[in-house]
Design a protein around this nucleic acid. Structure first.
Lengths: 226, 226
DNA sequence: CCGTCATGTAGACGACGTCAACTTATCGCG
DNA sequence: CGCGATAAGTTGACGTCGTCTACATGACGG
């Protein structure tokens, strides 16, 4: 290599100085897979999904451009790995709403809705990656991404089932009702992160009023009819 | 009206065979801008937005790779032009629901919802292009795309305002209420076209039941409280 | 008839994803 | 302890893409 551009001194974690191996630090880089995911998550937040190139991520991790192929079979697979982290996080915030308000189903419902909206606005680019058309989302491919997505969805289904049993939410196929409720939340978030509600975002007060209205609409839409 | 694709001859319209000029055939190609949009719409339907490359569209229109720059300042602008056609079409189907059921607001509401869902499923790739992150959607850029989008949205606002006046839909800022209602529809469609509801689509009967539930949920969510 | 401008063309550049072939470091086994 | 197998990383190449610049062409107005 003619010149090695100093690029990223903060890349490789110095191959085991001390002789005792507290942590394995297995191979050349140490843990390139995790480093790529971390760099990807950072870059996603800063510059959006378009900026997530294999070569760019490799650069950020301080390795050569094809090194990622040892850990991800394609760019799609790398994006899927990043998106997967998003679903894990989304599930966490939904579970938190549950643990804080599980006894009051209406409160649980509304807080879960707010948590979903909060996630979408707080991790807008991640949200777009998770639900947009940035990578293939076919069954059979990226199974752990599907698992993570289903895991997040399951927290909504749990909420709906519990709310049906307590009489808050209408009876009917829990899947269908969950989707109907989810759709309201998701539609609002999807429109917002894709800048289709700019006339709202310019007005933070109206935005938060609308977000609250959406959360209530979400509940009223599936509330048990008297 | 580039939306209908009556099977283009796929190449240049033969530079003046006969000597008499029946149709003007104005410039070199004739009407490259419309040809590019038409080819784009066709390709979008067949292969999705990823396939919409400037060079590929030029190929389909039978011109050299940089010719499109005479009519669109960038790939983004070309995508915006194609998306714009989608908003025009969407507005049309929403207006049709209006004209057929304008006297019965509940019917109008439900048919508009079905029309929206029908558009999303019938023109899934177009829908993704219109609402996904495939191009910049900043205010000030692609103004005619914004106009078309706002035109389609306005049909929903009109519906909400009329329904508020007749007491079908809750009072409140018409924008906020429109967005809440729109969100339900849009979320369902967005999830579906992005293949997040595959367990539904495998089951056409459940799918249509859920679509109906979503349309009703959309109304119940904003119905005037008794 | 001629100049001008809109329209279309050709070449080049740097980015990208991916493949094949190569090198290097680590670990398991005798 | 040493050695081969193999996981991890590198280099070079190929074809694609969007876009820039310079150039060619054809239609229309004076």
């Amino acid at each position: 290599m003619p010149f090695k551009t100093p690029r990223k001194p903060a890349a490789r974690p110095a191959p085991r100085k001390g002789r005792r191996k507290a942590v394995p630090e297995p191979y050349h880089h140490g843990n390139l897979r995790e480093a790529l995911l971390a760099a990807g998550i950072q870059l996603l937040k800063e510059q959006g999904a378009e900026a997530l190139g294999l070569r760019e991520l490799a650069r950020q991790a301080g390795v050569s451009r094809t090194a990622p192929y040892r850990h991800f079979e394609s760019r799609d697979a790398l994006l899927a790995g990043i998106a997967e982290q998003g679903f894990v996080k989304l599930r966490e915030v939904l579970l938190e709403a549950r643990h804080q308000h599980e006894s009051d189903h209406e409160r649980w419902f509304l807080e879960a809705a707010r948590a979903y909206i909060g996630f979408a606005f707080g991790y807008a680019e991640h949200f777009k990656l998770m639900f947009g058309g940035y990578m293939k989302y076919e069954p059979g491919q990226h199974t752990s991404l599907h698992d993570a997505g289903n895991g997040a969805f399951q927290t909504l289904v749990d909420l709906i089932v519990a709310s049906q049993e307590s009489g808050l939410v209408m009876k009917g196929d829990p899947m269908a009702v969950s989707i109907a409720a989810w759709s309201t939340l998701h539609g609002f978030c999807s429109l917002a992160v894709h800048k289709r509600l700019d006339f709202l975002v310019e007005n933070p007060e109206l935005l938060s009023k609308t977000a609250d209205l959406v959360a209530r609409t979400c509940l009223e839409g599936v509330r048990a009819r008297k």
